[in-house]
Design a protein around this nucleic acid. Structure first.
Lengths: 215, 215
DNA sequence: GAGTAAGCGGAGCGAGCGCTCCGTTTATCT
DNA sequence: AGATAAACGGAGCGCTCGCTCCGCTTACTC
């Protein structure tokens, strides 16, 4: 928030207006078609030139980061809400539901949630905020006997990777099909459903290496 | 098999040799790096020019189709084996295990298994062979009370889409992590684990539309 | 062994991408 | 109103693809 105000200070009036136009049209296009839309389409919808875009954002990634700022805030909010929920399993499922709904509504989130997107400072900050909340939530759900005990925080990306694929694939044809997938997976995560798994979760170091490799 | 012999008939000896070299090097590269390797790398490894490649295959997709012929055959074999297994659940899980292991070992399968790849005649033939076998297998596993009854054959692509993502993402860092994912999902597919799902499966028509959209 | 159709090689085309460069326009301040 | 620094626009660069074109080479036939 403070950073946000700082970002907006010393700009000439037209520059600030155009920056906002760019973010707005990028948001629309990302939501419609994902982050892979060409930058030229973004500038065209904004009625501006590409020079203008690159005056404001050093790289397309930075634009993505700026556009997703609100979505990140919502995600953090969902995690905080889940963290204080008495019934940890309910909190866990509600968080997943909310996160994936955001994901589905804003296809731009896709690459970023999925551990990818490295240089994105806002994305990194969001993950840093969310991670401990979810880790604690998982522990509590396990203590309460709802979540299978061999599930770890390092298995969480699995849910985002796979749900992301379902959302991408079926968005155009059955935009809420991901809920069915989530239902199936959650049934496998309940403590009662657990049977021994063939191999351990990834280590934190392995996950970090994956993130570093990026897109 | 008969078709295979037919393919190889009226070629000059050097042409046949070069065709095989191309398929061989494509197979290696697809397995190593997925189907997205540039065609030029394929021809280089084969020690041939690109003109040669496009004399034999009208399009890169056709080459993919030819390369994956053996993998398709193995898949069909796995499905046939599963179909005659007395314990339908065991057959079901063994098929998934085998299919995903093929998938992991041969990254080229990735785009094809996932309903994509349309013009690929061999791929289409394989799907046509496998589909009824799996449909029957699912029915039997449900009759035997092992597989949840709200799972349908149209939910099957879900497993390939999502497992494919896991395999792609973790292949370089933990090449058998997909087994853990499969374990989790299978626990959600058992009849005992089932809780009501929020929405129905895709219809056959919807799946067909997805396939038609392709990559 | 000569003639010929079949096969070959690889420069290069066209399309799409992110991004740069710099001549032109414009907001702002006196 | 004039001066000036800030902001703008968009042609074009550099890169990567899949794929084509056509002059050259080679295997097969008689």
């Amino acid at each position: 928030m403070t950073a946000r105000v700082a970002d907006e200070k010393k700009l000439r009036s037209d520059a600030r207006r155009n920056r906002e136009r760019l973010v707005a049209s990028a948001r629309e296009l990302f939501a419609e078609a994902g982050v892979d839309v060409p930058v030229e389409e973004i500038t065209q919808r904004a009625g501006l030139g590409m020079g203008t875009l690159y005056r404001h954002f050093a790289t397309k990634e930075e634009l993505v980061d700026a556009v997703l700022e609100d979505a990140f805030a919502e995600l953090v909010g969902a995690a905080e809400l889940a963290a204080v929920e008495e019934d940890a399993w309910a909190g866990f499922t509600a968080f997943l539901e909310r996160a994936l709904a955001l994901h589905a509504a804003n296809r731009g989130l896709k690459d970023v949630l999925a551990t990818r997107g490295q240089g994105l400072t806002r994305a990194e900050a969001m993950r840093a905020r969310i991670r401990p909340l979810l880790r604690r939530l998982i522990e509590r759900a396990q203590e309460q006997g709802a979540l299978r005990s061999d599930f770890t925080a390092e298995d969480l990306p699995l849910l985002f990777w796979t749900s992301g694929r379902v959302i991408e694939t079926t968005a155009a044809i059955a935009p809420d099909y991901w809920r069915r997938y989530l239902g199936l997976v959650l049934d496998g995560l309940r403590a009662e459903a657990a049977t021994p798994l063939p191999r351990p979760a990834l280590t934190e170091a392995q996950l970090a290496r994956l993130a570093r490799r990026g897109a």
